[in-house]
Simulated assay, not measured.
Amino acid sequence: MKTVLHKADARGHANHGWLQSYHSFSFANYQNPERMHFGALRVLNDDIVSGGKGFGTHPHNNMEIISIPLEGDLQHMDNMGNSTVIKQGDVQIMSAGTGVSHSEYNKNPDQPVKFLQIWMFPNQENVTPRYDQITINGIKKENEFYQILSPEKDDEGVWAHQDAWFSLGEFNNTTTSYSTHKKGNGVYLFVLSGTVEVAGETLSSRDGFGIWETNTIELKIDNKASVLLMEVPMNF
């Protein structure tokens, strides 16, 4: 078993006034050769956007882009004709493929929007761009992980062009475990809130922890905690 710990206060940080962005991996002006990616997981940005502000139209290609709102309402528009609002309890994915342009704005002028922006290398390039969005409130479970992304179109959650599985979990004073779906995959845990013990480490809010070369991960939660778990191939 191998592990890597990324403490919350060791992340990259960009202050653009209207945007506070915390980078678990190298992004824009934050470049750390020891934090380029975790397997197929390339970007994990923890963003806070001021009221009415946002990202103007910009391009992407050959990347799976997942957005998970944590608070507030995020307005999305793209050149595929999509104009939607995503909010807490939603998950959005774009397969950029051959190329897509989009914008993201805080829909509300009087409150911030907080969301995770996640980029993942695809397992095939130059696919036809696509967009999907789901509400996950109906699949939430107590004290166990529930799946929000997989490689299968008919599976629970959104699907991606990658042998990856994402899960969320809200826990209270319990122990739980997670087993990987595919040999050679690793798991990156990101603690949204609370405290979690895993593989001898105590993780707090916004800490990240990668673990690989093992099939099963045991977690202990003494109080309340919310965790995002991202299982991805490691051969990238």
Rank of each mutant, 00 (worst) to 15 (best):
G97M: 00
D47F: 00
Q88E: 13
G169H: 13
R42C: 04
T195Y: 04
G184A: 11
S204H: 13
E213V: 09
W212D: 01
G89K: 02
F145W: 09
H181M: 10
S179K: 15
G81P: 01
V191M: 01
V187M: 04
Q111E: 12
F166A: 04
G54T: 01
Q92G: 09
L19C: 04
N235W: 02
V196I: 15
L44A: 01
L70G: 11
D9W: 06
H13R: 09
M77T: 15
H58S: 13
T216F: 11
G157K: 00
Q124P: 11
D9M: 06
M1F: 14
V100C: 04
F190C: 02
A14K: 12
D46V: 07
Q20E: 14
V4W: 08
F171V: 09
E231D: 04
F171P: 08
S83D: 15
Q31W: 03
S83A: 11
R206H: 07
G72M: 03
N108W: 02
V198H: 09
Q133Y: 00
T3K: 15
Q147G: 01
D222L: 08
T176F: 12
S24W: 09
F115C: 11
V187D: 00
F190W: 11
Y146K: 05
N173V: 10
S204P: 11
D207C: 04
E152L: 08
L168S: 03
I134C: 07
A160D: 03
A28K: 08
N185D: 06
T216I: 06
D154N: 14
V198G: 10
L168F: 14
M1S: 10
F115G: 10
K7R: 15
A28Q: 07
I211Q: 00
G89P: 05
